[in-house]
């Protein structure tokens, strides 16, 4: 136990926790997107998927708890490291240029916070249905209809799109970074990892963006 706590207390160990939880979260995103894309197959496919998940409620809860734990750990570690990093430079430069670092790498906290607020809204929106009381009148698993109704609102569609773009930025740096934090970013692997980071983040974003855009533009509807 002491070795785990000293591991986590060190800045390097803490970064590894961020990397490992990041892997889990990226995995979740991939699975989530695969399910979401069923929207293009029509209402039955999507709603059947949603219902099937509920059929395995105990497993779903295990996954949910695991996901929540990773999410919380990722955020807590990020806050801890950010505090440490701010503390490490008490006096700012009056003039500072960035030579190689990417914008996404320097704005991880910002993109992360927007993604966090999005996740909270997303849960309130579709899982708990607090934001749209009218959803309660729908059938319990009519996910399809909820989506279509929501994304007809330009505000909701825009916020979803914005969040997904920032999520892409977050992943663009995060995926490469996690390999570095776990010590896997070296030699011939470097270009592969960089390409994978860009590819995975862009593909995920395109996938997630396709749904609100398709609905808002009326390509799919009721």
């Amino acid at each position: 136990m002491t070795s785990i706590s000293s591991f986590y207390r060190s800045s390097v160990g803490c970064k590894m926790v961020m990397a490992l939880t990041g892997i889990g979260l990226v995995g979740f995103l991939c699975a989530h997107l695969a399910g979401n894309l069923l929207v293009f197959k029509g209402p039955e496919a999507l709603n059947h998927y949603a219902r099937t998940l509920r059929d395995y409620l105990p497993i779903l809860w295990v996954l949910r708890v695991g996901l929540l734990a990773m999410f919380v750990l990722h955020i807590v570690s990020a806050i801890r490291l950010t505090q440490l990093n701010r503390w490490a430079r008490p006096v700012a430069y009056t003039n500072k240029k960035n030579v190689r670092s990417s914008l996404s790498s320097r704005t991880m906290m910002l993109s992360g916070l927007v993604v966090l607020s999005f996740v909270l809204y997303h849960l309130a929106h579709l899982t708990f249905r607090w934001t749209h009381p009218e959803f309660r009148e729908l059938g319990e698993f009519d996910v399809y209809q909820m989506l279509v109704m929501s994304f007809h609102s330009p505000y909701v569609a825009f916020f979803y799109c914005l969040s997904i773009v920032l999520l892409m930025s977050h992943l663009h740096h995060g995926i490469v970074s996690l390999f570095q934090s776990l010590g896997l970013y070296h030699g011939g692997l470097q270009p592969v990892i960089r390409a994978a980071g860009a590819g995975v983040s862009v593909l995920l974003a395109m996938g997630f963006l396709s749904i609100p855009i398709a609905i808002f533009c009326g390509w799919i509807g009721l």
Binding site: K15, N85, N98, S101, S105, S177
Partner: peptide
């Protein structure tokens, strides 16, 4: 010593 952590920006 109070150094920050590495966020892999490569700066």
């Amino acid at each position: 010593e109070g150094f920050g952590s590495c966020t892999n920006t490569q700066e």
